[in-house]
């Protein structure tokens, strides 16, 4: 009996130890930026209430938040899975774009197929293309030992040209003012989960991906290999883990997750390929992954919080003419303060 209570007490204390630095970091970041806001002459309280509550005031706001949440969660996972093995995937943007290109290509080329066939093909194409785009830097790392940070970033830049080519040369929609392709077949579109305001079912896939990744990493020997590699690659190699394969696979899985989010953007949100559909999801995804300190259980929650901030930020720019970048600075500061809390704890 007493052992159980202490066990419970420990868990509560552990949870509190984890949460308190986060709360302090959020408060400190908002306070710091708030002082700046006030100095420039903005209405701080109204700005903050817009940022924090837009998502919860109207059904539309909430659906907007969920739509933002899907790519953010997947981008964060695309960064966090390789991070578990100690590798930095900064290429989620390119992987998303190429995944979207793959999904759109399949959706357009086979537009006549029924949903039962086309939708899985579109999703699979996103995953495969995203995985392939990550496989290039992964292979360069495996074969030549080239730093993955640099190559994944380069692949982003290359993907910008690729999407531009596809959207202006191959399947260009001549009626659109912005580089955009023609729509994909109706059978490739995600069914709606909620009709009004429209919420597509991509969120189900994203959450399922998060659960599968979490279970795999924490409950299977393969996941153990991944964690061990991230903790000390040299020791893992000495004790029989093929760490180079771990690096390779973790990056490819990260790319596949980003590619999935590209497919969801195409098949769920836009129903076509639009240049710029990647938004700033990559940066936010990395911030989420780092804020969660690579903890796969924390990623979905942190991602939701950031989605709320982002939706609030656009509303703030619309209604109050305050640049969205302010919120980006808040997010970067929260990250910095969360990281600093580790230093404080160490002392």
């Amino acid at each position: 009996m007493s052992e159980q209570t202490t066990e419970l007490g420990h868990s509560i204390k552990a949870l509190a130890d984890t949460l308190i630095p986060y709360i302090l970091a959020v408060v400190a970041a908002f306070a710091a930026v708030g002082i700046f806001f006030a100095a420039v002459g903005f209405d701080v309280l109204q700005a903050y209430s817009t940022i924090l509550f837009t998502s919860f005031r109207t059904p539309n706001g909430f659906v907007q938040t969920l739509l933002k949440y899907v790519p953010l969660l997947l981008q964060a996972l695309a960064f966090t899975v390789p991070l578990t093995a100690g590798k930095f995937n900064i290429g989620g943007e390119g992987q998303l774009i190429v995944g979207a290109i793959g999904a759109a290509a399949v959706g357009i080329m086979f537009s006549g197929l029924p949903m039962l066939l086309l939708l899985p093909m579109v999703i699979l194409a996103g995953i495969v293309f995203g995985g392939f785009w990550a496989a290039i830097p992964a292979w360069l790392l495996y074969r030549f030992g080239i730093n993955e940070i640099l190559t994944t970033v380069m692949m982003n830049f290359i993907s910008f040209s690729l999407i531009d080519y596809v959207a202006t040369e191959i399947w260009r929609d001549p009626t659109a003012g912005h580089p955009t392709t023609v729509p994909i077949g109706a059978g490739g579109e995600f069914p709606l989960l909620v009709a009004k305001p429209p919420l597509n079912s991509g969120i189900v896939l994203a959450l399922a991906a998060a659960v599968i990744v979490y279970v795999y990493v924490n409950r299977t020997p393969g996941g153990y290999d991944l964690v061990a590699t991230g903790a000390n690659a040299r020791a893992s190699r000495v004790f029989g883990i093929n760490v180079r394969v771990m690096f390779l696979l973790s990056l490819i899985v990260g790319g596949a997750l980003a590619g999935l989010s590209g497919a969801i953007e195409v098949a769920g949100v836009h129903h076509r390929l639009i240049e710029g559909l990647q938004s700033n999801f990559l940066l936010l995804g990395i911030i989420i992954g780092l804020m969660a300190r690579g903890n796969l259980l924390a990623v979905p929650f942190v991602a939701f919080f950031i989605a709320v901030l982002e939706v609030g930020a656009s509303a703030m720019q619309r209604t109050m003419m305050i640049p969205v970048e302010f919120v980006f600075i808040v997010e970067a500061l929260i990250l910095l303060f969360v990281l600093l809390s580790d230093v404080v704890r160490r002392r």
């Binding site: 940066l283 990395i286 911030i287 780092l290 640049p323 970048e325 302010f326 980006f328 600075i329 997010e331 970067a332 990250l335 910095l336 990281l339």
Partner: peptide, 12 residues
């Protein structure tokens, strides 16, 4: 992190 901050500030 500094990369993010620089990126944000550059347009802000």
């Amino acid at each position: 992190s500094l990369f993010f901050i620089g990126l944000g500030l550059s347009t802000l």
